[in-house]
Structures are given as C-alpha cells and as structure tokens.
Design a protein around this nucleic acid. Structure first.
Lengths: 338, 338
DNA sequence: CTGTTAGCGCGTTCAT
DNA sequence: ATGAACGCGCTAACAG
C-alpha cells in the first residue's frame, strides 16, 4: 500500500509538492482550479497530513497536556470534559497524565513534557507536592501553563479555582442559620491551599455569628476511609453537643451520614450535614445531604480557553491572574415529609 | 536562549550528532567514557529529545489514542485510569477524545487519527453508530485497534468486554431465587450489543426457572431521565404485581428506587431491585441496592495491554479474539434491621 | 568505537 | 501561479 502524503499526491497530479501543500492550506497564491483538483484527490485518497512532520516543521503540535492527580473522581472527570470541549473547538488534541498524588510521578511526567510534545499545559498539582522546581523549570522552556483547582502559589501564571473561602463561609453560615450552635469541620490534612481557605471561611463564619471556634471540633481526616469513619465516630461520641457538620470532602460527608445513622443521630433533626460534593451520591441519600458543588466542567473549560488563547498568541508568559468561579450551594430537604 | 538539542550538545562536546544520539540511547557501540560525558551535559542542560522529530524519523509516536463516548461516567473514568497505568508502564502517552455518543463527531475524530498521530487505538463506540466504514478505513492504515466495553462486531479485531449475558442471567436469577415471580427488565434502547446480551440473559434465566417472559415487563428507557421516571411510574402502577426489577443501567435502578419510595412500595419487601452500576451511589441508598459491577479498571488495563503488545510487535492486525472479564454481583441488605 | 550522509513529511523561503 | 531547494531534530545506513 503506497503511502498517501504530499509527495504521492503531487506525483499523481503532476505538480510540485509545494503547490499541493499550499492548495491544502488554502493559500491565496494558488489558482482555484488547482485547489479543486488537489482537494478532490486528497479527499478521494483520504489524505490526512502527518501530524509529526507538521509539528516538527512548525514547532507547534496543536496538542495540550493535562496533568491531574486522578480521573476516577467526578470533579476531574467533569473538568476533563470541559477541557476536551474547549480544545476540540480550537482544533487541539489532549494528552492526559495521572500523578495519583505521587510527587515522584509528577516530576517524571513534567520532565517528559519538556520534549516539546505539547503547546500548553493544564495542571492540578499533586497533594504531596511541596517543591515546585520541576514546574518552574518547565515554565522556563516557554511553555504556557494554567493551573486549575489545585493551584500552585509559588509559580506565577494564570489560575482557575472556585471561591473556596467563600464556600466554606457560606456552608458554615448555612448551618448556623439553620440553628446549629456546635458546628464541626471535617477536612483532609494536607498542604493544599484549598483546605486552608475553606477552613478560614468556616472560622470566620463562626466568628461573624458570635460563635467561638473550638479546635476540638476540627477533624483532620486521613487517606484511609475506614480510619476516617472511626475518627468521626469517636468525635461524635466525645462531643454529643455537635449539631452541625461541614465536610470539606464528599467522602467525609457520606461517612458522617453513615456514622450518624449508626449512632442513632437523626438527620437533620439532631445533626445537619453539608459537604463539598461533585457527585450525585449525596443527593441520593435518604434524607439527602445539602452540598456545595463546584462548577467542575466550567473550571476545566475556562482554564483550557485561557491556555489556548495564550498558545494561539504565542504568549509564553501568562499574567498571574486568578479566575474564581462560583460554587453552588444546594439545600436539600427530605421529600418524605409530605 | 539557545535550544538544547543534539546539535548543540554535539558542538559543546566536540563530537558528532550521531555519537551523542547513540550515547543517549545507550547504544552498545559507544564507549562508556563518552556515554558518561554526554549524559553529564545532557542532564546538566536538562536535555529532552524532541518527541516529534523522533516520531517522524522512526514512524512511531509512543502514543495511543482513546476514543470514548464520555468521561464523566465512573465506568469510563476507571477504564481510563487502567489505560493510563498500562500505557505509562510501557512508556506510552495517552491522547483522549470524547464522542458524546455523536456519530458525526466520532467520524471526524477517527478521520483525524489517520494522520499517524497514534500507534494504536482503544475505542468504545458511540451508541448511535451503525455504519463502521470510518473505523474499517482507519484499520486499513495498519493501525492496531482494540475495542472495549462497547465493541463493534463488524470490525475484526481484539475486544475486551464483560460477561454481559451471564451478568444479566445471574442478576435475574438472583431476584428469582429471592422469591420474585414478576421480574421487570429496564434497559436503554439502542443498537448496542451490550443491551441485547443482558436482555437475553434475563430471558433465559426466566425460562430456566419456569417463568414465562412477559414483553409487557420490559421497559425501553430513553435518554431523558425525567421521561424515564414517568415511564417507570406508569409501569409500576400498571403492573402492581411486579416484585423484582433488573435495571441494565444504573440511572434506571436509582430512578426505580425513587419511584418505589414515592409509590409507597417497600424495598426490598415489595420490590427487589438489582442494577448494573459502577458508581457507589447505589450502595449508599437506604436500603442499599444490590448491584452488578463491571471491572472497569481491569477492562481498560487489559485492553491497553493487548493493544500495546501488538504495537510493540508491529502487529497491525490483531486476532479477532474476545476477552471477557467477570462482573461482580454485590448483594446488599439493609444494615438498619439490627 | 566514531563521523558522514541521507532521509522521515512537511512548510517556507527564493526563484521563475 | 508554480517549482526547486532547504531544514525542523532525529535516527539509521554506511564508512572508516
């Protein structure tokens, strides 16, 4: 099977490679007649330009990279959806890499990306990452980078996040206004700025409503879910006065729900729960849990758009702006009360 | 900033480009001394080979493509996870494309892929796809293809699926053995072989246990969820004798759960429900629903491994074998009965 | 062991 | 409006 490339097309049409190339790229310096001839044969033979030759020549790959901790997570899955949508609209391809929150793996991936394989990078850093030299080094190769969700404060570039501080504030206030006086806060311990912001929103909301923050009511969860269930059980037993729980992570909200059921604490009469969530699980429980939901799809889409705009303009250095998208608070009540 | 490539390295080391290239690729025909010198400079300057130049020259991109209907779906998200894992282990990159179950989009993507951008393709076809000419045409470019989950019978190549027939059979039998006599089957209407297999398993299980299949008990759902809820409500009202429901799709199982609650049918006393599911939602309901769960991660991983093996051996044509992985039946009972 | 040469397929000069 | 020639960065064949 003879290869279908510019050369073979040119031979069959009795013209030069250059003319065929120009015709296919719709150059204005080629007659309409030949354009038609070239295109006819190209589509007939199902010609598709070799992406690598083109990339090599133009030093531009029409490909962006996405580096995220995981994909089996509704937030990131939705974000990828948004990214792919924006990329496709601009004719870009999407390479995906998973770090599994492993620092060494993240470094290895980022190093690999220096080979000019991508025109731009979208990234959500691994939770364990504290040293950002690898990212800075990548940025120095003039590769545009946009962070989303788990941003990296030490690297100056565009970032797309949600209003974590305000969400924490609103979630906590929601519980307070519903009558809660002893609101616990569950979060996963790590050095991500996200958790810190939500935590601060929680603290400020308490203060603003005349409640005294109690460190004993703040539970730092771990990675293992079984352990978290035990920690939550312990907390609820130690502090029977808890009448509201704000969970920074969906799993912790669900676990709280189960522990409450197990301990016979009625929801929401005895304990009201609100949690960050991008999954529908919380809404399906009986009674359903109220949630703060991040606009994951929009975050991915917006981040990709900003990146692609920079790529198209060959702007390697992005302004270190922070785009903040609003989360939505869904208040859910049991429908069984009718 | 001077570019870091073989040429610049060679100049600084006073040797030829070829030697540098060989040293970096650890060729056995280069002295250890020069290898050391080359590597030292390469790492010092953070050299990374240009992926496109290499791909063009070797006609091999170390990249595989993944074409799936959507990613915001736990099954596909887990599958991608498995694919990325296998790819990474073999040093491959992963390009991702979403069809959103749109035939035109699938065709456009597949056409794009003919440019030699990928060394192999993993694919789950769009639900609306009936004409497979675009896929066959891609296969004719000697690109190895492996289907997973939503396979395409008309194209002869390797396929990785779950035991849909058997799963349908086991799910139905599970309900029958639990005492159900009037088992309904809910599925999404389309021309995918998957639904057909599950349906056949359902029918055969009924027959095997002396029950007569009743076409009135088979509900063909649609894409819109609101409509499905209405259809299910209508079915349960029309047929109060229904005491078991087998849902081929998670959403239908969840919807059935809600309709039962709304109509005052107790679960599982009045109606037992079992559904295909890859999400934890079904397990979180109260009472939890029993599920048939596909090994999504393993499917992705296995499919990728088969594909990569073919790619490495430059075997364009894969044996038209079908790998079938076992689903798991989770029987869940309410824990509140204690 | 190392250097020289010749492309991979394409896009962009510079000619005509 | 078209063709000839060069080079993107890298690898492979052939010399020595």
């Amino acid at each position: 099977m003879t290869p279908v490339n510019l050369k073979s097309l040119a031979e069959q049409l009795n013209m030069s490679i250059a003319t065929v190339s120009r015709a296919l790229r719709d150059s204005h310096e080629v007659s309409d007649a030949t354009k038609a001839r070239v295109r006819a044969l190209a589509t007939a033979l199902n010609y598709e330009p070799n992406a690598y030759a083109s990339s090599l020549r133009r030093n531009l790959s029409k490909t962006i990279g996405v580096v995220i901790p995981k994909v089996a997570n509704h937030f990131f899955a939705l974000a990828i959806n948004g990214i792919e949508e924006a990329a496709r609209q601009s004719g870009y391809h999407v390479l995906i890499y998973l770090t599994h929150d492993d620092y060494a793996r993240e470094v290895s991936i980022v190093q690999h990306l220096k080979g000019g394989r991508i025109d731009g990078l979208l990234m959500s850093v691994a939770s364990g990452t504290e040293d950002f030299a690898h990212i800075k080094s990548l940025q120095e190769t003039n590769l545009p980078i946009v962070f989303f969700d788990r941003v990296c404060a030490e690297v100056a570039t565009a970032k797309v996040t949600t209003n974590d501080y305000e969400s924490g504030y609103r979630a906590t206030e929601h519980l307070i206004l519903a009558g809660c006086r002893h609101v616990a806060h569950l979060l996963i311990s790590n050095n991500l700025s996200i958790g810190q912001f939500r935590q601060q929103g929680y603290l400020d909301a308490l203060q603003a409503h005349g409640l005294t923050p109690d460190p004993d009511l703040v539970l730092h969860g771990v990675m293992d879910n079984e352990q978290n269930v035990a920690l939550i059980r312990e907390l609820l037993l130690r502090r029977p006065d808890i009448d509201g729980v704000f969970a920074s992570v969906e799993r912790l909200a669900i676990s709280t729900y189960h522990v409450c059921k197990e301990l016979g604490r009625r929801i929401p009469e005895d304990v009201k729960i609100i949690g960050f969530s991008n999954l529908e699980a919380a809404a399906l429980l009986d009674p359903p849990l109220s949630t703060i939901t991040q606009p994951a799809y929009e975050i991915g889409r917006e981040a990709a758009k900003i990146l692609l705009r920079a790529v198209e303009k060959k702007k390697a250095v992005l302004p270190a702006q922070s785009i903040v998208l609003e989360s939505t608070l869904f208040e859910r009540r049991s429908t069984a009360s009718e």
